[in-house]
């Protein structure tokens, strides 16, 4: 489904601020794979997502999605098939537009055939209301309200719906529950799991929660200094504890994981 070959990116090359953000990343995702990614700050997790989503063109390597080489495709084209969510709930929705209008925009991605002058129809509205009711937040009764009135959790749930309204080939989740309170975070995570499973979406999810990293999805990746240092799936992953994971990381990366948030999450469970 997704094939990254030798993807590398260096920011500010030739200056004192030179930073190798990605160095020779290789990754192959099978259709329906749900992989979690952990790593300390600056390991290159978000940069990897930026490369896949097209925020910049990598210095080296190629990115192939579903048989199509998208290495040089601009970001707005890629978003036809790649859904993305950020940690900040404010980034995914337009606050001064209504829930309905936001959903209509997300729906644009599928509308190859419809004219740019078409309007939101009653059928669209019914479909939006039906999908909103699946979130169980009562948003289907507030479709004419501006999104700016919603709470962070509601906005993030709406963003999740928008990212998957048209089933994407790939869903990128960048710590999308990290800014929410624990109860809301759990709810959004549950929604994520059910939507991803229901539509068989291939998914990459960055998390700082080691427990989530091992229990969610079918594969765990760990990143360090712009490289993927650990890739565990299948039977090998079952029964693995957080401590095992940290040990494997230290062995492969050459040093222990030193991220407070990640380590703290160990004791949360």
């Amino acid at each position: 489904m997704l094939e990254l070959k030798n993807v590398g990116k260096t920011f500010n090359p030739g200056t004192v601020n030179e930073k190798v953000a990605l160095s020779g990343v290789n990754l192959h995702l099978n259709p329906g794979d749900f992989a979690t990614i952990v790593g300390s700050n600056g390991a290159g997790k978000s940069t990897l997502f930026n490369a896949i989503a097209g925020s910049f063109v990598p210095d080296t390597g190629s990115i192939v999605l579903d048989g199509e080489d998208i290495t040089f495709q601009p970001d707005y084209r890629r978003s036809k098939t790649i859904g993305r969510m950020f940690q900040d709930p404010l980034r995914g929705t337009a606050p001064n537009m209504t829930i309905e209008e936001n959903l209509a925009l997300a729906y644009l991605r599928a509308s190859k055939k419809t004219s740019p002058f078409s309007r939101i129809t009653r059928a669209d509205r019914e479909q939006f209301a039906q999908r909103l009711s699946q979130l169980g937040l009562g948003l289907e009764d507030r479709m004419k309200q501006p999104v700016g009135l919603l709470s962070g959790g509601q906005r993030q749930a709406l963003t999740l719906l928008m990212a998957t309204l048209v089933t994407p080939k790939l869903l990128l989740l960048d710590e999308h529950t990290a800014a929410l309170d624990p109860a809301t975070a759990d709810k959004v995570l549950e929604l994520t799991k059910s939507i991803v499973a229901e539509n068989h979406i291939t998914c990459l999810m960055i998390t700082h929660n080691m427990h989530d990293a091992l229990t969610l999805g079918n594969r765990t990746l760990m990143m360090d200094s712009g490289r993927i240092v650990l890739d565990i799936a299948g039977p090998e992953r079952e029964g693995l504890t957080v401590d095992d994971l940290l040990q494997r990381f230290a062995k492969n990366a050459g040093h222990a994981l030193s991220d407070d948030r990640v380590l703290l999450s160990k004791t949360e469970e």
Binding site: R78, T93, A94, N96, A104, L105
Partner: peptide, 28 residues
């Protein structure tokens, strides 16, 4: 009427949240 069309909605979203617009496959 124009601002209620898909193109009009995209224009409104561009001023409101350009990040989100690019993520909705609209060329800002």
């Amino acid at each position: 009427l124009f601002l209620g069309t898909r193109l009009g909605l995209s224009i409104r979203a561009t001023g409101d949240n350009p990040d989100m617009v690019r993520a909705s496959s609209i060329n800002t």
